[in-house]
Amino acid sequence: METVRIGIIGAGLRSGIAKNWHKPEGKSVVVGAADISEERLERFLEAVNPDAFTTTDYRELLMRDDIDAVAVLSPDYLHEEHAIAALKAGKHVYCEKPLAITVEGCDRIIEASKNAGKHLMVGFNMRYMSMYQTMKGIVDSGVIGDLKAVWVRHFVGWGGYFYYHDWHGASKNTTSLLLQKGSHDLDVIHWITGKYTKKVSAFGSLDFFGGDKPNDLTCPTCDLKDTCTEYSPHTLTQCAFREEIDVEDNNMVMMELEGGIKASYLQCHFTPDYQRNYTFIGTKGRIENSELEGKVYVRTRKSNSWNELSDVTYDIKKEEGSHGGADPKITEDFVNLVLYNKQPLTTPFAGRMSVAVGCAATESIRAGGKVIDISQSTVMS
């Protein structure tokens, strides 16, 4: 195989990543797409490849012999169904995060990949961002010593717009936003520390969104649209204060990782700003990032070595492409995985473990903060 022929399942917002795969003169080409919306498929054709095959039934896509690999970009609750079906059809699979909305679902996908003898890659594009690759390099260098603590604050300034106006707001579709939104952060904690979470305790609640509005109420038809802080003019935008919303918008998670590292993850969906703030503390110093400034700060403490004599600030270089230049890199890694068996920066097991932490934290929240142990199971990849 010299060129990977890719089919897309899910032509919604995240399908914009497919443009990175459609390179007729390169190593990959997008030849098909499936989505239940013909309107989205039409937009996909215009944006990616006007000659691509399209269908409203993903099974028709999987039956095609001219497709070698499939990118699963559908809503979270469909990842398991779509990924397993693609693997059983003999296709390599790129699956957006979270891998599934249950740990058992992740294990079933990984098992299907092994049985099919096909590659499975999880879309953890934060591992490909310059900011977090820089932070991992600093930690791995040993300049801040042995890691002991990780603090992560996630300010989701567009939480209502992204997560409470549509299917994300119902737990049956997501389990919780500690999976949908938090799986990135939980994975970065695991990746940079090199350790997985052993147990969690968490607290959270629905403090702003949700309420008593009808489930079929949309923003354009609402009598309060002129005064509502969450008004969105899109035709099908559901009310962010409707009855069915039951996923927490304010979460605090405490974790103990392998090796005794303590970590915290805080996520709030009604903040005025949008950024992630990471702090890693070691025995010789700490590092902290500022996404808004595009910087990583290294602070050192007395260590009886030259390292204590100065602090360092890293200016993160801007790169072309969506998600800070990460999407072109991660899509290329998937192509190289299929063509050359070149391993990417992430693994299916890492995808499984971020979901495991998110599920355990959600269970803890809904059990009043109970400590939940996290199993690594017998599925390793």
Rank of each mutant, 00 (worst) to 15 (best):
234 H>E: 15
194 G>T: 13
65 D>N: 14
243 E>H: 14
65 D>M: 03
318 K>I: 03
142 G>D: 12
138 I>R: 07
293 E>V: 05
142 G>T: 06
106 C>F: 06
23 K>Y: 01
9 I>D: 05
196 Y>C: 06
375 S>P: 04
292 L>C: 05
340 Y>F: 15
243 E>Y: 15
349 F>K: 11
67 I>P: 07
331 T>H: 13
89 A>R: 12
79 H>R: 14
223 D>V: 09
26 G>T: 06
82 H>C: 14
367 A>T: 10
147 L>V: 15
101 I>E: 02
238 Q>S: 13
138 I>D: 05
234 H>W: 05
177 L>C: 09
98 P>I: 13
207 D>Q: 13
167 W>S: 09
163 Y>D: 01
42 E>H: 14
69 A>R: 01
246 D>P: 06
312 V>E: 08
108 R>M: 05
61 L>K: 03
328 P>G: 06
22 H>K: 04
373 D>H: 03
93 V>P: 01
245 I>Y: 01
273 D>Y: 07
118 K>F: 04
293 E>F: 11
9 I>P: 00
314 Y>I: 00
277 N>T: 02
211 G>W: 00
114 K>V: 09
90 G>M: 04
102 T>P: 01
159 G>L: 09
294 G>L: 10
88 K>Q: 15
376 Q>D: 10
85 A>H: 06
10 G>N: 07
152 V>E: 03
307 N>W: 08
359 C>S: 11
319 E>W: 04
350 A>T: 08
332 E>M: 07
376 Q>P: 02
179 L>K: 11
126 M>I: 04
162 F>N: 09
39 E>Q: 07
9 I>W: 00
332 E>S: 04
111 E>Q: 15
351 G>T: 12
73 L>I: 03
318 K>Y: 04
316 I>D: 05
199 K>P: 03
69 A>Q: 01
30 V>I: 14
248 E>G: 00
32 G>Q: 09
96 E>G: 13
365 I>E: 03
323 H>C: 10
282 G>Y: 01
345 L>I: 07
381 S>L: 13
50 P>D: 07
350 A>F: 11
241 F>N: 08
96 E>H: 10
372 I>D: 00
206 L>V: 00
120 L>W: 05
144 I>H: 09
14 R>K: 09
307 N>M: 09
269 H>A: 02
320 E>P: 07
210 G>S: 01
70 V>G: 03
255 M>E: 12
250 N>H: 15
187 D>E: 14
166 D>F: 00
